[in-house]
Amino acid sequence: MGKYSAAFTKGILKENPTLRLILGTCPTLAVTTAVISGFGMGLAATFVLVCSNIVISLLRKIIPDKVRLPAFIVVIAGFTTIVQLLMKAYLPSLNELLGIYLPLIVVNCIILGRAEAFASKNSVGLAALDGLGMGVGFTAALTLMGAIRELLGNGTLCGWPENGLMPAITVFALPAGGFFVFGILIWLTNKLSTRLDKGFKPKQTIGCESCPNAATCGKGSEGGEQHGA
């Protein structure tokens, strides 16, 4: 059972896609001006992530290696369009909030990254749990960032109260404030993650060994050679 719980929990903190792997930065910065839009984006991406992980894991033995990336993208694009149609039909206001970033889930590197690094090599159960864990981590990161930016940038939380809890510091609702909050959160997650995982010593040099993806990538043992240095 150990590997099942590990497949689920690693996405939440240790390999948090947004704050540790720094994937999916575009939607992270773009939609986190409010709690609701961050949370909605997280849920939509989680749905696509879990479904595409399951399908890709099921098909992993019949998809020819040479066309695996286009095959993955077709599956991911299919699920993204399904989410978009459903949201347009039943949650039109959320659809409006997310705008162009909803169809852009197709090119969210978290989803293709998990398909390539995990789902295409593991069983269906593990792939589903991995997708769910990564999705929960992504949603949590986006909701937290949305809460901070909405409170500081607009003075409200989930649109409450009408007149604001505090004076708005508009810069937090702008891209610059997004990068600022993102940077601080990455720092905090790294701190927390290192503290919880005593044996983990971050390498000071840039290399595969210190990468949070080392375990799944399979190239981690090849050592701390600096790529492109």
């Binding site: 040479k66 299919g78 039909a89």
Partner: peptide
């Protein structure tokens, strides 16, 4: 490889057509 990719596309298109038929009127 080409056949497999075509097959996957066909299945995805069929699924999307189904969802579209379900949601078109609601949208």
């Amino acid at each position: 490889a080409a056949l497999m990719l075509t097959l996957i596309c066909a299945v995805v298109v069929a699924a999307l057509a189904g969802v579209n038929a379900l949601t078109k009127d609601v949208i």
